[in-house]
Design a binder for these strands. Sequence first.
DNA 1: GTCTATATACAGATAGAC
DNA 2: GTCTATCTGTATATAGAC
Lengths: 191, 191
Amino acid sequence: MDARTKILETATRLFATQGYDSTSLSQVARDASVSKALIFWHFETKESLFQEVVSRTIEPYSLEIDLEGLSEPEQLRRLIDLYYEFVTQNLYSVRFFLSLFLRESARPDDLFARIIDLHELYRRQLAEVIERGQRGGTVSHDVDAATHAALITSALNGILVQGFVLPTPSPTPEAIVSRLKATLVDTIQVQ
Amino acid sequence: MDARTKILETATRLFATQGYDSTSLSQVARDASVSKALIFWHFETKESLFQEVVSRTIEPYSLEIDLEGLSEPEQLRRLIDLYYEFVTQNLYSVRFFLSLFLRESARPDDLFARIIDLHELYRRQLAEVIERGQRGGTVSHDVDAATHAALITSALNGILVQGFVLPTPSPTPEAIVSRLKATLVDTIQVQ
DNA sequence: GTCTATATACAGATAGAC
DNA sequence: GTCTATCTGTATATAGAC
């Protein structure tokens, strides 16, 4: 692996676990077994290194979802499962971005916008499925689609954060997600 | 106001908005209009200043809840409202603690334990109300109390985090909370 | 491209006058 | 209690040899 990549991977790991301010380039250099000067040769400043790290981290984030042939309630359950899968598969970087949102001096605003976009896209997709189900008669008309969709994403995010924060959550995240589907999907289902 | 208090309040504001690492004592001194040396006279080190800040911030956190004369489903709704009220009234410090949990080098573990305790206390209280309701016949037996309680706290936390992260959440937090009560309480209510 | 050596700034912390 | 002046370490960043 070339030095540039080595630096990037080391920096990614350190930024993600310690944050921007608490990670020094000396530490990155040491962990990557290169000199500090080499970091500045490959990356203009500490902040541009950080920008590159964030770009590479966010890159695989996407929303490719196949819902063909499923009823609307089934689509909702699938969307919930996919969200949870995605988060558990990207636990490190999700945590990283969440803490970036809450604080941090180096805020790459354009990339934040991308994450918010993805989130809203997901929420809108939930809402659209609910509306389609209401028109098709598989979902109850008692719920406002947008609000219910927002509740689902909130609950998902909350389960996620709880997993980050609490030492060993007594009900497992999986159990809560399954309960989420039971309460937030089954109860608005018609039949 | 005496200098010590001035320092504490300035440090609280800066730590909360910028974090521990990104806040220098020079900045605290400047903003509080005192010399750096005075900070060290009042507080041994930067970290003990931080500890004191955290202690003072967490101090008003408590769980004094009056649920007399309410049916179990009403108690659940009340608990949810109280949680939401508490969080909105302590928005700054809640955000502060959340970001502490996600990162930060200075981790005062004993105080973290206190927050986790409060959280588990609240969750257990929800679970107990549900169980009592099941025994008394006001709550459906279809739900597992502990899991359902965990789902409620997750959803609440998620709504909270969403409020922190998203620019202007299209459904308001209030709307989502009311939807939460409709979906997570009404549907397990008997009658 | 990669290094050693160095410049410069600012961090946390101390000494000592008042 | 509060200050100015200073110490010491380490941070980001640069110069210049190879």
